[in-house]
Amino acid sequence: MTWLSKSTTAFGLILLAHACYSAHEHSALQSHRVASLTSLGTSQSGTATSLPIDITIETIIATFIICLGLVSGTSRLRPIQWRVWAGQIEREGEAGFLNSSGEVEKDYVGNPFRLLESRPGFVDIRKQRKEFAEWVKNQ
């Protein structure tokens, strides 16, 4: 997923750079033409200094493509309400907090009730003793 967004952004940046170069060349050509015409002494008026339509279209499309690439490259949002967020962790675990390259995000904290669940007061000690006794019997 990450390569898709990155290549989209890169493609858009190339288009934008090309449009920038084209616009620069166009303006350089215009100023050169105006200078040469005035040196010839001809009264020349109405030089079209507006950008050609193809450069305009290329710029706008490039901007849109970059925009699309950057938006698809953002990280996944997290629910802000505690019950929704904790519920998502409980249901999906680490799978709900992967970043775009498929790794668990660095600031993933895990179950927020972990401390409560491992508290000694809540450990079923009789059950553990029974399991241990069965395990000893089977040895």
Partner: peptide, 29 residues
């Protein structure tokens, strides 16, 4: 219904990073 401040920060950061980055691109365009 309490709110998770880390999630709020994470979401706001994602959005504002995107806005700042795209604003520069729009300026170039």
């Amino acid at each position: 219904s309490p709110i998770v401040p880390e999630s709020v920060m994470h979401n706001t950061k994602a959005l504002s990073n995107l806005q700042n980055l795209t604003a520069s691109i729009f300026g170039a365009a």
